[in-house]
Design a protein around this nucleic acid. Structure first.
Lengths: 195, 195
DNA sequence: TTGATAAACGGAACAATGTTCCGTATATAA
DNA sequence: TTATATACGGAACATTGTTCCGTTTATCAA
């Protein structure tokens, strides 16, 4: 019998992979611009694919939202080791917090969806913690070891605090939020072993 | 010229008033059951009126949501003087907090809508404060004057704290939340002038 | 009581959007 | 080059918000 049937180990087709990436990119941009309630058709058009292709990759609308969210969480988490390799511990921490704030700003529109009661999103907060907590933990440990900040800071507290501080963007102005976070981080430096 | 034209002072027709009440009742029940995203048709059917009638009274879906919300805020606020007249100051305060928790529980589904970015809902938080703060202030003043609780409690702090304490209803069980609030209120009693 | 009239009603029809389905096109492997 | 499983595109369907308009009815004056 000739082996021609459906092969489960067959690699993903190149066009499928490409379209998936195009979709994630397009969705990320449109979610950031128009919020997570943007029409699926709009995303398909921006990605240059048909609607059917969207639903092939993401059976439901919420699957696309989730994929974009996780993708952005991953990108944010992955930035930590990169920054740690290219900067000193204190500088790496500061820069990563900037990066994290950008992520939170993008996530604004998602917040409502996350707490909308749709069970599809139930796993997202856990993923958020799971991915970002260790990333930040490493940065904090390095900075503490170098004597640039005090030790004993809990990463999840920091994540939550900065997310809260970023919130009051009433006019869309982020400068105030950034000043608050900078001030907050200075608080970590005060009391460091080297001070 | 005979006065037969459109009379702006003409009283509201009886059926219009009745249908408006039916709609508010039906919407309140359905919002509590299925959330604020329930279809307009379902509400119209439950109220026993046509869709057109819904839109005559509430030009947009959000207007109906707002009307129900305000209606429930009013009912909760109006309960305060009634309880104050029929119970002692401490008991009136306790009972009103129970009443307030019921209101918050109903409002669960609304929370997402309120922060969804739809500008139609922008005024609701203000209305909430505006209406409930004075109602609670009176109860607090009476209880403090009677020496049953300490003075200097800010009503808005209490409103927010109790709303937060009521939130973690993971399984839909409200007993834990009620215990927490009761404990919280006992804290007010501790340190009262009569203690 | 009756007739005229403005107000209100009901629901068909339209628009926007999530989702399904299937005929067509194509990347891949032999 | 050819066969075929995979992926694609978009028409069609389902649900839901909203509009429109012909019909019904509450109200008032005679």
């Amino acid at each position: 019998m000739l082996e021609t049937g459906k092969n489960p180990d067959r690699p993903v087709r190149a066009d499928a992979k490409r379209n998936l990436d195009l979709l994630l990119q397009a969705a990320a941009k449109i979610f950031a611009t128009s919020g997570v309630d943007a029409p699926v058709r709009e995303i398909a058009e921006k990605a240059g694919v048909g609607i059917g292709t969207v639903y092939r990759h993401f059976p439901e609308r919420s699957d696309l939202v989730i994929a974009v969210f996780r993708h952005e969480v991953d990108a944010c988490a992955d930035a930590a080791p990169v920054l740690a390799a290219s900067h000193g511990p204190g500088e790496a921490l500061s820069r990563w917090m900037e990066r994290y704030m950008d992520f939170i700003a993008t996530k604004r529109g998602l917040a409502a969806a996350l707490h909308s009661g749709d069970p599809a999103f139930d796993g997202l907060p856990a993923y958020f913690q799971e991915r970002l907590r260790p990333a930040l933990q490493n940065l904090l440990d390095a900075a503490a070891s170098a004597g640039e900040i005090r030790s004993g800071i809990e990463p999840q507290d920091l994540l939550r605090a900065v997310a809260s501080l970023s919130a009051p963007d009433a006019n869309g102005d982020t400068s105030q939020a950034r000043r608050m976070v900078a001030l907050f981080l200075d608080g970590l430096r005060y009391g460091a072993v080297g001070t």
